[in-house]
Nucleic acid binder design. Structure first.
Lengths: 190, 190
DNA sequence: GCTCAGTTGCACACCGGTGTGCAACGTACG
DNA sequence: CGTACGTTGCACACCGGTGTGCAACTGAGC
């Protein structure tokens, strides 16, 4: 089957997210296939990880674009983004995990456009007074972003509770008052 | 010299913090010593990492105990803790980094008392109404704690700006209003 | 029934890191 | 001066993961 390749990529995303040092053997058996078969689809482990990372980044970039298309305030855009992102947050866990170690440089480069968009949203929010100025926009966006993954690693990961928690927490980091953060997390409208 | 052992531990802390997969050779040369010498002080890489982790954890535990000894409010205790922790935050980077991968279990166990104390502080704060209830105390403390290290990884790491940013951000996560957070970050008094 | 693509199950060479053994060296301390 | 300890610079065996080669098998489509 040609969807073997797809299955390998999907499984590798999970496996590497949990255990970034997993070898080709581990990935292969998780995909219900033999190590040799993986090499039939990807010339090297590096190449597998590369395509994996590209796929994950393009998915998050798409979600971000959708959320950013709205003409809502920066806080609503952020909340919308986190809500959309949540169902596939495990697909990015691998990016966060892989960002340290061998592939760090490469993934950082792939993520650069996303980082920039995030920073611009935060910057706009700061300009409008809905976000705080306790940190420069680029760093602030990174910290808020990272918190989402921290929460994804907790017990809350499953269910909608996680999405709500991630949204509220990241908004708090951005300097949004608690009441407003909760309102944004609950109702998609203003 | 017998302080060779100390130097190895110190250097390993930095090296592994930056690059958790560093080998004995890398650590050795960073310590200005030959690989064989490291094995003269530590029977195995595992043992090196173990003593390293114990040392780092006991340092942070000491700082936490100091901060927690005060009878201030939970928010002031937290701010005090982060301020004290900041100068040696790089010594824990290694713990955070190592928490994923091979030594995860072990480090998690070492950190358990710290985690518990942190959670109890947050719980007290929630009871007093100074911290929010958007997350259960144990998870909330972990997220706030993790944010400190996220900030430590940014450009702000050096200087007092980082300490201030880390304190404010973690307090925001805990649900402290921005004005109060800034006040706590600036003045040690109420 | 034949073909062909994908898969399997070995075999192998290679590499890098680990941990050990041992002889030689230097030097601080008696 | 001599000795004793820490360090050095090899040597080596071992292990686990990578990537390749090749023959055999399977199964779906012609």
């Amino acid at each position: 089957m040609n969807d073997t390749r797809e299955r390998i990529l999907d499984v590798a995303l999970d496996v590497l997210g949990q255990h970034p040092d997993a070898g080709m053997g581990e990935i292969a058996s998780a995909a219900g296939v033999v190590r040799r078969t993986v090499y039939g689809h990807f010339p090297s482990r590096t190449e597998l990880v590369r395509t994996l990372a590209q796929r994950a980044v393009s998915e998050v970039a798409a979600v971000l674009t959708e959320a950013n298309a709205s003409d809502e305030g920066a806080d609503a855009v952020w909340a919308d983004f986190i809500a959309r992102l949540w169902p596939l947050v495990h697909r990015h866990r691998v990016l966060v995990v892989l960002r340290r170690g061998e592939y760090g440089e490469e993934i950082h480069a792939l993520l650069a456009p996303v980082d920039r968009t995030l920073a611009s949203i935060v910057e706009r929010g700061q300009g409008d007074g809905v976000f705080g100025r306790h940190l420069p926009a680029d760093i602030l966006s990174q910290v808020a972003w990272a918190a989402v993954f921290t929460i994804a690693d907790t017990d809350l990961a499953a269910g909608t509770a996680g999405a709500r928690a991630a949204t509220i927490t990241s908004l708090l980091i951005l300097g949004v008052p608690e009441a407003r953060a909760k309102a944004l997390a609950d109702g998609p409208g203003t």
